[in-house]
């Protein structure tokens, strides 16, 4: 029986593994963390769009199904790929060496480190938090009623001041912020909730639920990118231009939420190196080669739904390859 190793147990890796096992291949999966589920589980999120379910609700059943049919190594990474062509001899950090006929890379992304954008005051200004922190607060029911909240879009995305590798869009931030803004508005009807944007990218059906609805229910969208956040009287003050009015402005809020961008994970960069795969300007994996398939966000940013679908699609490509070779 043909063997496949899936690297990364996030949404894309899990769905690829499940599909390949279902198609009758012998599948291994290696995941660096102790828990399967990828970024959504690691960052202990509250709710995932468009499902509006918690990460556990959404991804645990998938992980359980995978564990039944797939040999899973958690807490381990790929250490070396010993052969250049298939079959691949892969050594893992837990001492295991596997011989497989194909590799599916699904090593995903990591969140941008907001301390790099000093002007936005993370860790410097009271009341500046990340979107993941806000989710954790919501999940644990820790958030006290705020007078006002501002979502700051594109922190670590679309920003060449961070270097030439930061031109890309995170693709989840606008919808994610729209979902949380709406949630806040519903929980705390008298709170003033703002979204500061350059463009709102809630593509396809996300537009209605995560842009139109929040607007209708009182979330105020301001067209201007936040240039600076500093502290005044213990509160964050946002500096921005309301570009539709053409007016430079300041706004004091209780909570400023940084909507963090995503970038290739260390694992993604490492595997690209190990397998000498081309990376694009942002460091995402930009090519496949014989026996090596790339799934999910490690080749460019996808939403969760897209990552799940892409995992399946990649599995199918791998399966066709594996069948075409021998049968």
């Amino acid at each position: 029986m043909k063997k496949v190793l899936v690297v990364g147990g996030g949404p894309a890796g899990l769905s690829a593994a499940e599909a390949l096992a279902g198609l009758g291949f012998e599948v291994y999966l290696v995941e660096k963390e102790d828990k399967l589920g990828g970024l959504p589980v690691k960052e202990s999120r509250y709710k995932l769009f468009p499902y509006e379910k918690s990460p556990e609700e959404l991804l645990n059943p998938l992980a359980e199904r995978v564990k039944e049919k797939v040999r899973v190594f958690t807490g381990a990474e790929v250490e070396a790929v010993l052969t250049d062509r298939p079959p691949f001899d892969v050594r893992l950090t837990n001492g295991e060496t596997l011989r497989v006929d194909a590799l599916v890379l699904a090593t995903g992304v990591k969140s941008f480190d907001p301390t790099r954008k000093g002007e936005l005051g993370f860790k410097l200004v009271n009341g500046v938090v990340t979107n993941a922190q806000l989710e954790a607060m919501l999940a644990r029911n820790e958030l006290k009623e705020p007078g006002s909240v501002a979502f700051v879009f594109c922190v670590g995305s679309r920003d060449l001041q961070l270097g030439p590798s930061y031109a890309h869009c995170c693709s989840y931030g606008c919808a994610h912020a729209g979902m949380l803004a709406l949630e806040l508005k519903r929980r705390f009807p008298s709170a003033r909730v703002y979204c500061f944007y350059t463009d709102v990218r809630t593509c396809s059906t996300l537009e209605r639920r995560y842009y139109l609805l929040p607007q209708r229910e009182g979330v105020r969208y301001v067209r201007g990118r936040v240039a600076r956040i500093y502290e005044q009287n213990g509160k964050p003050v946002l500096k921005f231009e309301d570009t539709l009015l053409g007016r430079p402005s300041e706004l004091a809020v209780d909570l400023a939420v940084l909507v963090l961008g995503l970038e290739p994970s260390e694992g993604t960069k490492k595997l690209a190196r190990l397998l000498s795969l081309k990376q694009d300007e942002s460091g995402f994996i930009a090519e496949e080669r014989e026996g090596v398939f790339v799934a999910g966000s490690c080749k460019g940013l996808l939403t969760l739904q897209e990552a799940l679908t892409d995992g399946k699609a990649t599995a199918l490509r791998a399966a066709l390859y594996l069948k075409g070779e021998k049968t």
Binding site: D199, R225, R228, K239, F240, E241, D242, T243, P248
Partner: peptide, 15 residues
């Protein structure tokens, strides 16, 4: 330029 307004928001003369 994508017209984001960061320049204007940073500008001391605009203030």
């Amino acid at each position: 330029c994508d017209g984001c307004g960061v320049c204007t928001a940073s500008c001391p003369v605009a203030e």
